[in-house]
Amino acid sequence: MDTSVTPTPSSGAPAPILAVEGLTRRFGGLTAVNRCSFRIEVGRITGIIGPNGAGKTTIFNMVAGALPPSSGRILFDGTDVAGLPTHTMFHRGIVRTFQIPHEFGRLTVLENLMVVPAVQPGERLWRVWTSPARVRRREREVRERAEETLRFLTLWEVRDELAVNLSGGQKKLLELGRAMMTEPRLVLLDEPGAGVNPTLLLKLRDMIRHLNRRLGYTFVIIEHDMDLIASLCEHVIVLAEGSVLTEGPMDAVRRDPRVIDAYLGGGEEGGAPPPPAPLPPLPPPAGRGTRRGSGGGASPDGG
């Protein structure tokens, strides 16, 4: 592979924890992801942006094991994990969240987190009936961890609520909480900011930053909110039509005419559209509360 992808290390030369090589996924006649190659460095927050249909979530699905690739390699820690099932990926340390919250509706918020940890003797029926003491001991640990996580997420007050009753934003926090219930080596966040109100969004941003800086989590974030990406990610990968268009620091990427092109859906006429408006719609000066995409004309969702 001629992955001449410059690692652009910000400090030293961190090793890639994930290297995607020539990843391709076809759905019938549609090629959603087309020979995509990139690397994710350890300890970093990497952003993946691109217009709708660029293949971002499909890549996540393949890396998380929810979808087998048509071809290509997914090297996690140097070994090819392409096509392994989701639960195996999880045990290797890849955790993902969903764009649309996937809560366990009729479990309480606390239980939603308690489900996650991998080593639970109480998930074996035989152990439940024969060694209840051991099950109970581990259960106490799991519960403490979940309670700690809920405090961090500021969901402590709603811990006994059924998850189905949470607000959209709270469900997003719960998604993040699931990742925190293990020792993840790579966390894939699929649009953590979508449908989250601005105040909560700031909180969410700080949480992600905290997890990265203090606990050393490695994140890959798909996001349409360019502010969130700009403030969190040292490195941004831009996808268009299933392939990597360019990558680099956000400042460089957002000035790249090809990126602007891809978002504005130009292309046929070759040259960049006349007024190269600064690409990402920075937050509307006032009002326009939510960031549901369809806000401004030049919204990334417009493509």
């Binding site: 998380a64 099932p85 969903f98 366990f104 509706g105 009729r106 489900v115 074996r124």
Partner: peptide
């Protein structure tokens, strides 16, 4: 027990149960 919890998690959302590392 956690056994029952993981079963109801599967009932509630299979994809999320998989994402939580469960062999659904």
């Amino acid at each position: 027990a956690p056994w029952g919890r993981v079963m109801s998690a599967i009932r509630e959302n299979e994809a999320a149960a998989r994402a939580a590392g469960k062999d659904v």
